[in-house]
Amino acid sequence: MKGFLLSFQSEFYKSRKTLGFWGAIILPLLITGLAFVSVYSKSTDLAKLPPMGLWVQFSMISLGSMGSLLLPIYTIFVAYSVNSVEHKADTWKTLFSLPISRWAVYGAKYFYAFFLLFLCLALFALFNIAFGNLLSVVKPALKFNEYHMELQLIQVFYKLLLSALGILSIQFLLSLLWSDFLKPMGLGFVASVAGVILASNNWEYSYLFPYAHPMGALKSMLKQNQEPARSFEIDIYTKDVYVSLAVAVVVFIAGYFIVQKKSVK
């Protein structure tokens, strides 16, 4: 456990000056910031909406962009960035000759990638809540303060996080095995586009395809038996989320043995 914590700490130390880390902060800030500007500039039209409608309108800018292509692509990028640090510096051999168990080194790297994804989505939830409330302060005509959907927002972003874990495990393994940027990125991009197409066309088996999960997660987020007029409940644990979690666990464990067998070149 100590080796894991030391390795995790070292991952942060190494990445704190890279785009891999700052991307997790800049991306939610940028998208939510744009949503803020967009809603602010259209405040006259939007003031007619009921408070709940305002929140939906505002948060769907982040959710829509993340749920379609942005989240899979960002996940691919995070998986690449934590591994490319070692590929570029040729440090795999050093990492695996440290007096730390291989599981701790591998696990810490994976969980650091997970942490970046978590940070990104947690900030999305936070910035959405903060900027929404800020809008009602700077434009009192926008009645964001008259409705509260903090819980639902946190739940949706949490669902998105879970739905991206399958992609994270697959891309983490690909980026670990391949040192170049194009192979894992290209493969991941093609798979993500296919995922969006499958999920948006409601293909019945799209829940089995990890790259379709973020979009599928958004489509399945509303509980079916709800009347959406006054409030809504979020259905987090849908079948696509379960498949995503299962793929994440299986590929994470299999990845360790693949890496072990491959030895360090």
Binding site: L6, S7, Q9, S10, Y13, K14, K17, T18, V85, K88, A89, D90, T91, K93, T94, S97, L98, P99, I100
Partner: peptide
Amino acid sequence: IGSLIEQPAIYHHLTGRENLMNRAMLLQ
């Protein structure tokens, strides 16, 4: 054991001191 295999494994985006700090952290 201390080792140096082929070309030195160094993080280019970190300073020399940070490279050593990172390793010092891992080795306590």
